[in-house]
Design a binder for these strands. Structure first.
Lengths: 355, 355
DNA sequence: TCCCTGCGGGAAAGGGCTTTCTCTGCGGTA
DNA sequence: TACCGCAGAGAAAGCCCTTTCCCGCAGGGA
């Protein structure tokens, strides 16, 4: 690889001058020399060594992002928002996939710190895991102590700036809609228990049901991976144990698509026999058949705001922005089938509750 | 940020020793000193400066990847394959999205070179643009001249190692299937003309039709963006100009989903009234209704092979691996509707061909 | 006893760049 | 004529590590 001094030598100038020309320094350089340097750069196909540059100007510029998986549409959308702001400000993004592995998350914090990122953004649900949370907070605090900026998206455990989608309100929206449609036997296809996103959405849902005198027993909740196959499988288990269900809430759209697949496989009409509500409103939601009724989260906007927070002025007190959820009515949620039946209290079936 | 010498000072050792302990050098260090260094590292929350490390050990390790867009399922799958191999070998991946902008692609080659990547992988269609292709090849050649390894996925213009999905054979598969089902009025929803992927797939398709005495006039091809909305819009245009079409080939699955949306909006039964064949077999293809008949490409495997090529021994002559396409029959392609009609030659309708 | 060997540790030389500081020579002022 | 100021260029000091080279010392063989 050609180095700066190669260029300088070839142009017959000092490395200092070459550097000034190449970086468009404010210090003036004669046109004559400038020409010579530029010519040498072209001839040698010179590209500055980014590591050397970053080392020399101790000017952190890149931003680190840790997500569960960029190819998951949820994160793809958030990332789109992050990118938009970062690109506008000429920042490079380093994106890391933790694949929902807490340890990997911890490692990536270190890695990105090591890469001297100016800021760190963690997107995606937090974990119900005190030991991990403490460790993560320590690492983040250490990073912030050295001037690094941190923002999180969708996790409350962090003490600094945060962008929070209103998962609880979203869950409530889904529950209220189904209750309004007359459903009383509602099952839930949930993501991993250990994720705060799961429990937050569940909490909102449970509250909505409670407001309609319904409770949500554990046997009507099935936990699985937060993806299509998880949704398909959890729906199957749900149906097996409770065939009378008239509605299923999936805690994200991928799971909802899996649920739809299972329902189709069992020839249960949606929404005629059973209704489905998803969560997140990812782009594909409108293209499945029937089009998915779901809870929309302003994902791109969440990314935009998080990046703005982190690249803007630091605030003395942590800022927490809660972004609203919105119900998108499409075609998978309809009125509960059959005549309005007597209210069967869950207690009456307690014998089953062995889940 | 704490530096190595901070650690060394605190531990009362030389930076050399500290470095050896931290990196697990082969050189032996007394347990006593080791302990002290480790303690200092913990107390100071020391993380080595990655740039300084990379500079010091002039040991290229990371691999650069340029794709059109990781959040596009096509590239997400390829990337999964790339990651798998890279992770196994302890390599860090730097992934850049060009968003199908040739200039950005060129910039990223420079950027990644500057970051001293050990290898470069370009995934995604090439362009019918000689000037660009020449520039890119120059840059790649310059990089290879300094010992960098390069592989491309799905573009033929490069002179070195390449992994090629058999786009042409895939197009042929789609065309043959539709012809076998009796379709004679077949439209194409194509990606941008400038992409070689588009023209390759089109060429295969055209050949299959020719084998059944059909030709593919330009007015039955609509070019649009390679995404869902492009597919929806192109399908609408196609239908407007040629309502008798009984089948549509979409040149990727995203476009196929858009096509399905338009068809649904116009209440045209799939596959009863009109058949649809996609391309790529992205995961969602099986979950739309009706499930999408499409041409599968071994995307993950393409990633795996490309990375293996680039991390393995260099070959004296460029290696080109062509990976086969496979037709996946699902529910969107059925027999052509109506009684077998007289073969209407496209020539008979030439008056329309004003597209 | 002397020398050699090998071990554990430190000094110092880079690695490629930026940037401050210094130097040279010129035009302009007193 | 003597001096000042400044523009434009180079020298050199880092930035933070790794790694080679070298040194002192203890132990073992002759």
């Amino acid at each position: 690889m050609a180095t700066l001094s190669d260029v300088a030598r070839r142009a017959g100038v000092s490395p200092a001058t070459a550097s000034r020309v190449i970086n468009g320094s404010s210090k003036p350089v004669t046109d004559e020399l400038r020409e010579r340097v530029l010519a040498a750069v072209a001839e040698l196909q010179y590209v500055p060594n980014a590591h050397a540059q970053l080392l020399a100007r101790s000017h952190r510029s890149a931003v680190g992002v840790i997500v569960h998986d960029v190819s998951d549409p949820y994160f793809a959308e958030i990332t789109r928002g992050l990118q938009r702001v970062a690109t506008d400000q000429g920042r490079l993004l380093m994106i890391c996939n933790s694949y929902r592995d807490p340890d990997r998350e911890l490692e990536y914090v270190e890695l990105l710190r090591g890469h001297q990122v100016a800021a760190l953004i963690l997107a995606g649900s937090g974990y119900h895991d005190e030991a991990f949370t403490r460790q993560l907070n320590e690492k983040l605090a250490a990073y912030e102590a050295t001037g690094g900026r941190v923002a999180v998206i969708g996790r409350h455990e962090h003490s600094g700036d945060a962008i929070m989608p209103d998962n609880r309100a979203g869950g409530h929206l889904a529950g209220r809609e189904l209750c309004a449609l007359g459903h009383r036997a509602i099952g839930v296809v949930a993501g991993p228990r250990i994720l705060t996103t799961t429990t937050d959405r569940l909490a909102g849902l449970r509250q909505a049901l409670a407001e309609h005198d319904l409770d949500l027993p554990e046997r009507r909740i099935r936990y699985a991976e937060f993806d299509r196959d998880g949704g398909a499988e959890a729906t199957a288990r749900l149906l097996d144990s409770d065939p009378e269900l008239t509605a299923v809430v999936a805690l994200n759209d991928s799971m909802a698509i899996g649920a739809l697949a299972t329902l189709r496989a069992r020839s249960l009409a949606v929404p005629g026999r059973i209704s489905v509500v998803g969560f997140d409103d990812m782009p594909i939601a409108r293209d499945v058949t029937p089009a998915l009724t779901t809870v929309r989260l302003p994902l791109v906007d969440m990314g935009v705001r998080a990046m703005s927070l982190v690249l803007g002025a630091a605030a003395p007190t942590p800022r927490i922005e809660v972004l609203p959820a919105e119900l998108i009515r499409r075609d998978t949620a309809g009125p509960a089938p059959g005549p309005p039946r007597a209210r069967t209290t869950p207690r009456a079936r307690r014998a089953n509750a062995a889940s």
